[in-house]
């Protein structure tokens, strides 16, 4: 404790506590709880049975009440800790309840019926993870299909984004040609054309291309990201022109230069763009909602929102599928967040 707390609470110059230090730590700890708490709470909840979810006040861990099959009774009986008149407690199974008195039996010796006041007994509960919340949506609903659609859209869109954007960035950074600044201006201008402004005409274009109710209709409009071109171009500008000139001397074609020289050297920027693109495409919602109207084509995001909007929401399934939807993003967060945070801090783009 001593060393750890001194390390964590160390302050510049080893001065004594100042009120700003207290504010800092209250803010940080509060932030930790507020930022992670909701997602953690959701994850815990996703392992609860529907009965446990309906409970108020809720428990943090998923509990189920224990039951036991007792000789002489057809149905499994619920177990209780019952307080006996002599002050001891016994685990008893409830046979039936009449008014304020419960008729109970000892599971080990089911012959004798014990009468217990219902105020003197508490249900025996044990921690149990309702994993069927996860397996049922995959086996009985279409969620496996949605998961696959999401993965397909994310991977395909990211690959196309990387290729198309890097080609454009190569042209815009390593060639002098007429209309270069015009192309650059158009790309930057599209930064300010959000989907909500063009969704009606975009929908008609997608339909006339026959891409309505097709995953390609989701993928194609998203791949020419201006942000991607911008990030890659900035990076390619730092590649020395001499390398390219030398390759030209050796009779390399322009495509070879792009593929064998420029792309490998742009790897760090490509990695940043790939991470961004995966998160963007995985999280896309409004556009897939418009383009996909057949259930078997839904992505996870669309499927989740449709199921959660239904009249009798099956929260135990929704919660579990929300956790599944969160997993890739949490993985990106754990392993790659450093790239993203430095990338954003550097360019101010997201």
């Amino acid at each position: 404790m001593g060393v750890a707390s001194r390390f964590i609470l160390r302050r510049r110059g080893g001065k004594s506590w100042h009120w700003t230090d207290i504010v800092t730590w209250v803010w940080l700890i509060g932030g930790l709880i507020i930022m992670f708490g909701p997602a953690v709470w959701l994850t815990f909840s996703s392992f609860k049975t529907p009965a446990a979810l309906a409970e108020f006040p809720p428990s943090i861990l998923p509990y189920i009440t224990s039951q036991a099959t007792v000789q002489g009774y057809d149905k499994p009986l619920q177990l209780f800790d019952a307080k006996m008149p002599d002050g001891s407690t016994r685990v008893l199974a409830e046979v039936r309840r009449i008014g304020l008195v419960a008729q109970m039996v000892d599971p080990k010796a089911p012959g004798e019926i014990v009468r217990v006041n219902i105020g003197d007994r508490t249900p025996v509960r044990s921690v149990s993870f309702a994993t069927e919340n996860y397996t049922t949506p995959f086996t009985q609903f279409d969620f496996l299909r949605y998961l696959w659609n999401s993965v397909f859209v994310t991977v395909t869109a990211t690959l196309i984004t990387l290729i198309v954007n890097s080609m454009a960035a190569f042209a815009l950074s390593k060639y002098e040609f007429k209309g270069r600044s015009l192309a650059m201006l158009i790309i930057l201008a599209t930064l300010m054309v959000p989907l909500s402004v063009i969704m009606v005409p975009l929908y008609s274009i997608i339909s006339s291309l026959g891409l309505f109710n097709s995953l390609w209709g989701v993928i194609l409009p998203t791949v020419a990201t201006p942000t991607g071109v911008f990030i890659l171009r900035q990076y390619m500008l730092t590649i020395p022109d001499e390398l390219i000139d030398a390759a030209r001397m050796d009779k390399a074609s322009e495509w070879q230069i792009y593929w064998r020289i420029v792309l490998p050297l742009t790897a760090p920027a490509l990695a940043v763009l790939a991470i961004f693109s995966v998160v963007w495409r995985w999280n896309d919602f409004l556009w897939p909602l418009i383009v996909l109207s057949r259930r078997e084509l839904y992505t996870l995001q669309v499927g989740l929102s449709i199921y959660s909007g239904e009249l009798n929401v099956q929260w135990h399934f929704i919660l579990a599928m929300t956790v599944v939807t969160m997993i890739p993003v949490v993985l990106v967060f754990i392993f790659l967040q450093r790239f993203i945070t430095t990338g954003i801090a550097g360019t101010g783009l997201k």
Partner: peptide, 12 residues
């Protein structure tokens, strides 16, 4: 810590 929710999808 403060960046975590930014990555979550709006639906989530």
């Amino acid at each position: 810590v403060f960046f975590f929710p930014v990555l979550l999808s709006p639906v989530v």
